[in-house]
């Protein structure tokens, strides 16, 4: 990977910085690729669900290549599966709102990376839960940059490869409902939500959002109940000052309160 070089050199404009010892480099790279392997594998389920939702193999691949943010991808195909093209605006809105957090990660990683030009555009694309987590978990700046780039590239490569595998597998089956793929999508959303329910605010938000979706589902077109559920975040976020979410912590490559996909 050529990115290892730039990651090490990116800080040369900011005063002298001791280069990373070889042992630490290997350690960071190993962590990055193990996180990439664990996360990337979940692309299989995305690929299968995407073709079950009516996307073709190319469209599923385009999402993993160009959108490259797991929860948004699952949400987009989930809503399209339920509501078809009529639900497209709601599907795009939901995917975008779920992608908003990557922008927040970018606020931190942009300071950490100090990337400019094309490299900044690439860094933005690779800004996901895992690359941010591994990056900010490293104590020394060169390791932070190496961790971010290596994890971003590892997840990108493996997520895309496994998406292709999943969509080809999914295409081999005629009736997705018989296989329980609609329920698999529900299971995926539960599994994406689960690790985020760590604070009382989060639990309150989830309950309120579920209620809003339940009540509105029979009344409004497909996709809209999910958009309406977003109001729960605003309501809970504006109340109860003091019961905060914990700040971002990288830990072992997993951000506090993030889900297990990119």
């Amino acid at each position: 990977m050529t990115e290892a070089g730039p990651a090490r050199n990116a800080g040369t404009g900011k005063g002298q910085e001791t280069p990373l010892p070889a042992a630490r480099r290997r350690e960071v790279i190993r962590q990055a690729w193990s996180v990439g392997g664990a996360t990337g594998a979940y692309g299989v389920s995305f690929g299968a669900l995407a073709v079950a939702a009516g996307l073709d193999v190319w469209q599923a691949q385009a999402l993993s290549f160009l959108m490259f943010t797991g929860a948004s991808q699952f949400a987009l195909v989930g809503i399209l599966a339920a509501g078809g093209l009529a639900a497209a605006p709601a599907a795009v809105a939901t995917a975008s709102m779920l992608g908003l957090r990557n922008g927040l990660y970018g606020l931190q990683t942009s300071l950490m990376l100090g990337a400019t030009g094309l490299r900044r555009l690439a860094a933005a694309h690779l800004t996901i839960d895992e690359s941010t987590a591994v990056g900010i978990a490293q104590p020394e700046p060169p390791a932070q940059r190496l961790g971010f780039w290596q994890t971003g590239i590892a997840v990108f490569v493996l997520w895309n490869a496994s998406t292709l595998l999943g969509s080809l597998l999914g295409n081999a089956f005629a009736d997705p409902r018989q296989l329980g793929l609609d329920a698999a999508a529900a299971g995926a959303f539960v599994a994406l939500l689960w690790p985020r329910l760590r604070s009382r605010d989060a639990a309150a938000t989830a309950v309120l959002a579920a209620f809003v979706a339940l009540v509105s589902a029979p009344l409004v077109p497909a996709g809209i109940p999910v958009v309406l559920a977003a109001v729960a975040a605003v309501v809970v976020g504006l109340r109860h000052p003091g019961r905060h979410e914990r700040p971002l912590e990288g830990g072992d490559g997993i951000l506090t309160g993030s889900d297990p996909t990119p």
């Binding site: 529900a186 985020r196 309120l208 589902a217 999910v226 729960a232």
Partner: peptide, 26 residues
């Protein structure tokens, strides 16, 4: 805080819709 809670709300809504909503939303 709102941005942190947004994925929670959306995913919770998605769970409900994906689990109990029929083709016409019933």
């Amino acid at each position: 805080r709102i941005t942190t809670l947004l994925p929670v709300a959306l995913l919770s809504g998605l769970v409900v819709v994906q689990t109990v909503a029929g083709p016409g939303g019933q």
